[in-house]
Design a protein around this nucleic acid. Structure first.
Length: 257
DNA sequence: AGAACCGCCTGCTTGC
DNA sequence: TGCAAGCAGGCGGTTC
């Protein structure tokens, strides 16, 4: 599932490959996506990430925004054939960007370009003071808070599990019970883990692929996610999988307190 | 107001 | 072997 590192990978690759290109046409293959206003003739200016959203800004002051949700991918290719589960195609000069999405949760919109200043993105600007004021006293679990898009941009289930394991904090621990020092520890590990995820072009635990169809390499770095029953890599414990707020959560009961 | 829960989807896994 | 049920989960909307 695409989280911050996966979406950042796609945005960097898109910007590198298609900035300056002109859109020839856009085809929507899935009615569920709804109508997209015409984009033919527009030139792509830049591609950037806003949380987990991909924003492709064009030369008319609007931006094509894509959210991949669970199983969405973008695939840049030059074939005429339609890949399985392709829901939308953006045609450029001799190249296509296909939105591939088996579960059909992804969303696509054309929105006016807005100057958005996010203050909750650990890879961009993040205000610790504002975070402490707004969220540190909340009664939700620390894992739920890590995955709350208002508190942190782009952190999903896999990276939340990894961050809490690295920080030695139990996922069900209440957010309001962490000291400022513990939050600093969490944020330090979060930055490190997200950065490494980007360097590794994402975590290909199931069907994640980058813009060119290549798997990422960050699955080799995972310390807890998907490792139920295996030995903890930090201590002598055994990783368990528990259900928390409806999501599979991996942690080590011995070294996460 | 804040926290918990629901439903959207479909491919894969599990159990009989 | 085959088929149905169970499961996965981001996030907007609804309910408590």
């Amino acid at each position: 599932m695409p989280e911050l590192p996966e979406v950042e990978t796609l945005c960097r690759q898109l910007h590198e490959s298609v900035a300056g290109a002109a859109i020839k046409s856009v085809s929507v293959y899935d009615k569920k996506l709804g109508g997209i206003e015409p984009l033919a003739g527009r030139a792509i200016r830049r591609v950037r990430r806003l949380g987990k959203t991909i924003s492709i800004s064009m030369d008319n002051g609007k931006s094509l925004t894509i959210h991949l949700r669970m199983t969405g991918r973008l695939f840049l290719h030059s074939q005429n054939t339609k890949p399985p589960h392709s829901r939308l195609r953006i045609r450029l000069d001799g190249r296509n960007i296909d939105l591939i999405d088996p579960r059909r949760f992804a969303t696509v919109k054309v929105l006016p370009e807005t100057v958005i200043t996010s203050d909750n993105d650990l890879m961009e600007s993040f205000s610790l003071r504002q975070f402490m004021e707004r969220h540190a006293r909340r009664k939700v679990s620390v894992k739920t808070l890590l995955m709350d898009a208002r508190a942190f941009a782009g952190i999903g289930n896999i990276y939340a599990c990894e961050i809490l394991h690295a920080a030695g904090i139990a996922p069900e621990k209440r957010a309001d019970s962490l000291t400022p020092e513990q939050w600093k520890t969490v944020l330090r590990h979060a930055r490190r883990i997200l950065k490494k995820g980007i360097q590794n072009r994402g975590t290909s635990i199931s069907d994640w692929r980058d813009l060119y169809g290549r798997p990422g390499e960050n699955q080799n770095e995972l310390k807890v996610y998907g490792r139920a029953g295996k030995k903890c890599l930090r201590c002598a414990g055994v990783i368990v999988r528990v259900k928390q707020a409806g999501r599979g959560t991996y942690c080590c009961p011995d070294c996460q307190k």
